[in-house]
Design a protein around this nucleic acid. Sequence first.
DNA 1: GGACTGTACTGAAGCGCTTCAGTAGAGTCC
DNA 2: GGACTCTACTGAAGCGCTTCAGTACAGTCC
Lengths: 360, 360
Amino acid sequence: MDTEQTRRPTLDTVARAVGVSRATVSNAYNRPNQLSAGLRTRILEVADRLGYLGPDPVARSLATRKSAAVAFMLRSGLSSAFSDPALTIMLDALAATVDGRDHALVLLAGNESGGPRPDSVARAQADVVVAYSLPDTAPALTAVRQRRLPMVVVDQPATGGAARVELDDFGGTQAAGRYLTELGHRDFGVISLTLQPDGRNGPAAPERRTGSPFRVTRERLSGYIDALTAVGIAPEGVPVWEAATSDREHGRTAARWLLQQNPRPTALLCMSDELALGALQGARDVGLSVPQDVSVVGFDDTPPAGVADPPLTTVRQPLVEKGRLAGELALTLLDGGRPSRPVRLDVELVVRASSAAPIR
Amino acid sequence: MDTEQTRRPTLDTVARAVGVSRATVSNAYNRPNQLSAGLRTRILEVADRLGYLGPDPVARSLATRKSAAVAFMLRSGLSSAFSDPALTIMLDALAATVDGRDHALVLLAGNESGGPRPDSVARAQADVVVAYSLPDTAPALTAVRQRRLPMVVVDQPATGGAARVELDDFGGTQAAGRYLTELGHRDFGVISLTLQPDGRNGPAAPERRTGSPFRVTRERLSGYIDALTAVGIAPEGVPVWEAATSDREHGRTAARWLLQQNPRPTALLCMSDELALGALQGARDVGLSVPQDVSVVGFDDTPPAGVADPPLTTVRQPLVEKGRLAGELALTLLDGGRPSRPVRLDVELVVRASSAAPIR
DNA sequence: GGACTGTACTGAAGCGCTTCAGTAGAGTCC
DNA sequence: GGACTCTACTGAAGCGCTTCAGTACAGTCC
């Protein structure tokens, strides 16, 4: 007898209590115009009295094949969503766009392989997924495709009908590189984002630099290299440090190593502001001053770049715009819209005090 | 005929193809030891060939009543999770703790009422929920209780068996206030976090200051007031500005108004670093310098506080520890553990250059 | 060689909901 | 007053999976 008390009420409980069919109770919640206002009120009252909270989300999802959530696939741990400024700003804009759509945001953590495990994708309850800067080879991408979930990809090549927003990464680093060569720099060091999805951290031999599955890394590297070869610098001679993650600690380590090379670089080309900010510290560690002894350029133009000491010369990318666009594309797909042509965003070189002509 | 081709394969499809029962296919995925290794391999092969991705997450959730997700209830929009430094740092630590548990993180956006709408809570697919600094009266809390989901609350009173982690907010602001009175300050202005859940922004009359449903605001205000009354200052005479959200823009506006009051405060007591950072700018706006003309203290000790100009005197709270603890409590509840006694974290006054004795 | 024990697998009953094709009955129309 | 249309509601078939109580059968034991 008492078991009815302890079990959570369901549609059925309410239907029985009111003396109508289950379908009618369902309609009371989902299609108010399918029943008389009076009955509806009565149903809702009884439901309330019984402590029934409305249709169970999971059961509803099963029946409707919708889950009212947007999934976001991260390249690494959940934590990166809250600690990497470039990602945070983008997610912020994405969230703000998707907000008010009554969809929750599901964050899918990635691991070393670059992106979430396929089974956590298979398991995720979402109607649309946004992938951000995963390696082209990420198993997670295949999993999404197999589930036939609509997807928008950011900063990576589109695969099989995904909507895409991307950046002129190449143009950005090329501009930064050219700016430095024009200042007269000839000895460079590169602090790179991950080149290969094996979590390595350290100097990257030339073999490792080609065919990176990370579009962003690939493009940014090509842009820098392009600018250097344009003035006759041989790419193989340029030392590259590959940072396992984009944070200051890795940038610092990288800079310390690069500034020990011979010839010592007079300019450090970084692939993110966080790395560049770390490089600033690294230079200080080895007793060099920026920009007198060494110039440092970053990428992203996140807020810390502007207030760094010295303020960072960097390539500005429209992070907010990127997030907003990704959000809008996700909403379009959610409504059954077809993915439009890839959207490409422009970048802009922002010159500040961390760069100067080399001392002859 | 062809419809079989276009429909997504299910457990049944695979079972039929292999010629075994559905239960056996289910076992192949969930309880490998319940069938022979050979059969299992065969099933997995066929599944793979058919493009079957493994049990559908929603159906599985319905059958098991588990969803492999942790929900986080935000007081305001999704976006605050990525833009408020104090929140970001805590979430980062929480995420890092929960990570590797194969649970996704579901972010539930709040609205003006303070926290998510009850129906979005009712709809959320999660096994445990973490509530952060919601008003005591938040409908979302009731909804969680009705769903009988385990909950851990952070920075708010526990209700009905929730696990809790909280801060010595009172002690923190009391210490900050006392420090300033000891320096000789007697004229104060307070920049407060939201007092009442109606989204108001502006000067807060004394009626509005009592009985705030926000524990954090309540405690921090009491701490400040306590320190002031201790030296004979009447609380009603202290101007308080209530900021609708904790960001710099609001802090700036608040400071401009407070510094126009008569007598002009010689110290601004802020309830967050973001507000204090804005107050720094606000003081500058009206031609006052910090700390010569006016002292400013914050709360949180987020990274920007340390690098502000001038660096901010503030109350440090262990944000990382807070997030980590919340994560661990969530994991405990997830495993069916009972909530332990509330955990209370200590704070510490960090004196930097934004505060000084008033000029006589 | 009969009783017992595993092992490997199956059938069927849910999990809680949505939705579609109806049906009953009241109202409208000429 | 018969044909038609609405409105308000119901019955039942899923959605795709897990799980529990079996069953069948081979192996072990004395």
